[in-house]
Each structure stands twice: as structure tokens, then as C-alpha cells.
Write a protein that binds this DNA or RNA. Sequence first.
RNA 1: GUGGAUGUAGUUCAGUUGGUUAGAACGCUGGAUUGUGGUUCCAGAGGUCGCCGGUUCAAAUCCGGUCUUCCACCCCA
Length: 458
Amino acid sequence: MAEKPTIPKGTRDFSPAEVVKRNYIFDTIKQVFRLYGFQPIETPAMENLSTLMGKYGEEGDKLLFKILNSGDYLSRASDDLLREKDSVKLTSQLSEKGLRYDLTVPFARYVVQYRNDIVFPFRRYQIQPVWRADRPQKGRYREFFQCDVDVIGSNSLLNEAELIQIIDDIFKRLKLNTVVKLNNRKILAGIAELIGQREHLTDITVAIDKLEKIGLDHVNAELAGKGIPAEAIQKLQPVLALKGTTSEILSRLEEILSQSVTGMNGLEETKTILRYLDAMDLSISVELDLTLARGLNYYTGAIIEVKTTDMKMGSICGGGRYDDLTGIFGLPDISGVGVSFGAERIYDVLEHLNLFPQEYPEITRVLFVNFGEREEAYCLPVLERIRREGINAEIYPENAKMKKQLNYANKKEIPFVALAGESEMTAQKFTLKNMSTGVQQLVTPEEMIRILLQTSAR
RNA sequence: GUGGAUGUAGUUCAGUUGGUUAGAACGCUGGAUUGUGGUUCCAGAGGUCGCCGGUUCAAAUCCGGUCUUCCACCCCA
């Protein structure tokens, strides 16, 4: 016996039921994106390694999937490097392509490459899989989908506000209760500046980010561990202790940050965004959260993260403003802002809360039971008419036992079954059975179409 | 990358100090029911116990390796 086939670690197959549910999420997201004037782009699964390397930090480079060159790749590698067995150096000779790690960097590449054809501000969305050679865990895969929306080439804070509006719209449609956490990199920079630790901004934000998770004492310990003087940590305490409503925190920050130009700048931006949001009549609540840091270093302004209040789960959407993403590809001073929806996590949340709809456009709405050749011939034209009406319909392909055919409908969750035997054929009608209620009625093809369209969810 | 668990029918799990033909429930297939499913009853199929190797008269059980899945850290979606 051959061994059972498997798929690579951290990858998944999706069954019909799963694909249908995933499409529900993707379709909802896409619909809203389009509604706000965003257009889709797609980029290749693989990029040149030179495009990807160095964009995600040292850790990120390790997590890149690299693609071996084609042909006799070893013959072109230097003998010295082969003998040295230095993987990093050798890789550059054996591989020049890699699988994309996220959608943001390929997007930046795209913008730079087609800068003369793109109409700015460029509003694009992109829903594609990305790959990371991470160690898999639950909710963490080596292949997963990202849904990114970005506006590039506009400094207006209206973009930030609109993205939050989009978030509100999407999660409203998905019937998920969420909160938006808002912060600003400039506020964090201002804080670092005031305690005299500007060069430790990253360490400080990474540590502050963990406040909720590991508590104040551990955060302070971690800060000390990063070489930040006790005096500076002491100065940081009032900020870490800030609590209250967004407006309370804002006014307290105004005092604290008054000596920092950058900090005040970030504060002003935040207030502007909040003012825009006031005019938008959102149902989602937006809170200022200073502990929100987001790992990635390329954010320069607003930082956004979304959490569900319905269950314990990490963020399901996040993003922010980045001022110089295209700079690394030689096109400086183009500002962008965007967010990414974590489809896999949203899936887990909806599944856990049972929020997926019962009916999907993909599901067959009516199954014609097959009683034999004559009955088949009677059903086929009607089946054809029903399909023309846009109703998903199928006929059981063989004259199997009734029990088996109804069971098939049950398992596929087909809501209606049409039966036609001797009596129906002479009456030129069908018996239409509702599989959930068990009720059945004798109807003409026209009536059947009407019922099927009426009861359809959409 | 570091540390820790896990793996037995399709699924969830039993399996005594190593000892004959490895069990249950659910699911599956068929029948009771020649045109009526989700209930019930009856019957049946299905496992070289993740994979490779070692110890032993004897391994699902002990040991080593490997892979998978999961958990914590790191990082992240």
C-alpha cells in the first residue's frame, strides 16, 4: 500500500463547505471595498528576492520561502561557498526568487514600477495568499490570505477616517461586534523623545504593546532589559498609567507632550481623524489606545487595530499610515495608508460564534429525484428552465433508491426536492418537497420557479 | 529559532505490569420499507496502532530517530 498523500506543513485544503464560507467573507469585504472606490490588483506569487529581502527585518528574511533556481543551480555556485556551507551567502547564488511574504511590499513595488500609469491617489485592494516559513500553530499557517486596502499618494487624514468607515461597514455586514483601537506613531515617538530615549523607540513600543498581555511590571522589566535607564522608565510611568475616555486621554496627553513637536503633531492628527469620524455616524466604537504599537516599523502616522468584543481573539484587522514605503524602491515622498483584514481569524471568529449565514449562493436549491428514463426526460426541460432563472438545480444522475436520493439532498443541505412520477407527469406537474419542514405540494413548473425564487435568501 | 505535549477504524476516543483473532460510540454500506430523508431495529464492511529502526521468545504498549498536529516563547495575520 502506498503511503497516504499529505500536504506540506502549515498548509490546508479547503472543502466545499469551507470554500463557500470563506467566499462569504471575501465577497463581503470586496463588496465594501468597491463601494468606496477601490480597485483590485493582483501580483505574482513569487517576487525577485531582491524585492523581498531586507524589507521585513532580519527575522523576516528567515521566514521567506525561497525558490531554488531552475536548471543545474549547483554548477553555478562558487566552490568556496559550497565548502563553507554558509547558508545565507549560498542562498543568494542558488535562489533569486521567493514567495511573497505580504501584499504591502509587492504593492510598493507595483506602484514604483507603474508610477507613470497609475492615477494618484491610487486606491487599490488586493486579496491573495501569502507565505511565511513560520512554525505553524492554531490560527497560524504557512500559507494564508491577506485582504489589503490602501490609498497611496494622498496625505489627507480623510483616508484614515474612510478606512475606519470601511472597517465599520464590513464588520457590520458580518454581524460582528468590534472596536477600533487607534494610536499614532508620532505620539509614541513624542513620548520616547520626552523621556530622552528617541533611539529606543522600537524597543519601547514593542514593550508597551505587551502591557495588556504581561502587565506593567514585566513591561518595565523588559524595558530595563533593553538598556533603558531607570530614570527614563520612571518618566514613562504616567503615560503607561493613562486611563479613561479618549477625550480625557487626549487632554492629558496635550499637557504631557506639549514639549514635543512630533508628539503634538501626532495628537493633532488623531484629533482630526476623530473629528472626521464624528461626521460619519459609525456604529463601531473608536478608542485611543497608547499601548497599541503594531510590530512593523514602517508605520509613521496613525496606527489602527480592530478587535472583536464577542470573544477572546487577537486583532482581526490592522494597519496604518506609512510615509515612505516606496522610498526603498527609489520613489520617495509618497505617503500611503492602508489596513489588512485577517480573513483566517475572521473565519475562526464567525465559526465560533455561529455567525455564518445558513444559505449560500453556491448551494443547490432544488434536486430532481430520478425515477427512471421516462421521468428523466420529463424533468430535463424543466431543469433547464429553472437553471435559466438563475436557480441552482441538479438531477440525481441515476435511478437510485428514494432513500438514497433524499439522503443525498440532506447531506448537501439542498432545501427543496422535486419529484415527478406517473401521476405528476399526467398532471404536467411536480411534487415539490421542502426538506426542512417536510411539507410537499403539487405545483406546475411556473409555480415551482416562483416558490424557489421567493424562498431564496437573495 | 527555543522549550513542551501529541499521533490507535471515516470521526471522537478505550486498550490492564509488554502476552493469542486490537475494542466502543458515532459515521458509512445494505436490509426491514418495489415513490418519501433526518427516528427505530437488524446485518455488514472498515485498522500492517503516524513512519523507520532498536530491545525482547513476544511491542499499540519499552527505547532512539523522523514526520504530523497542538501549546508556550519569539514574531505575527
